[in-house]
């Protein structure tokens, strides 16, 4: 203590470093190492290939605004797709009764997005088809 007050008269006292600070610093170092490791792993295991987008219906709700079909669009491929358009069609035999389309901003690789389409007809009364029709490289 005495030494500290001595220093004060001469200049800034040397900053004392508590244990907690070292702990946080170690955490930071571990994070940096972890991030590096993960990114390196991803970079090394990266495979080029088209995005593989699979749309699956989650549920259908009858609402005042129509029949809302909630679905997930999952990108099972190794590359990210942007502006993914998903087309939903209600068909009966060869005839298309109704169709709805949505554009999803982007679906990262191995990720999924939830979205919905609205139909006036009850999808249960016909065949509901969901598929991604286009995408753009981000």
């Amino acid at each position: 203590m005495a030494k500290q007050s001595d220093d004060k008269t001469e200049g800034p006292p040397p900053r004392q470093v508590g244990r907690l600070e070292w702990v946080v610093a170690a955490l930071g170092a571990a994070l940096v190492a972890g991030v590096f490791g993960m990114l390196l792993h991803e970079a090394l295991t990266y495979e080029d290939g088209p995005p593989v987008i699979v749309a699956t219906v989650l549920d259908v709700h009858r609402t005042e605004g129509g029949h809302v079909v909630r679905f997930t669009a999952e990108n099972r491929g190794h590359t990210t797709a942007a502006e993914v358009t998903v087309l939903g069609r209600l068909t009966e035999g060869d005839r298309t009764l109704e169709q709805a389309e949505i554009t999803l901003d982007y679906i990262a690789r191995k990720s999924s997005r939830e979205a919905g389409l609205v139909f006036q007809r009850d999808p249960a009364s016909a065949k509901l088809e969901l598929k991604a029709t286009s995408y753009r490289k981000p």
Binding site: V17, V24, A25, A26, L27, G28, L31, V32
Partner: peptide
């Protein structure tokens, strides 16, 4: 010390 501070900053930023 600077390296320690940098790691602390990274941890906090993250």
């Amino acid at each position: 010390d600077d390296l320690r501070d940098a790691f602390v900053a990274f941890a906090i930023g993250f």
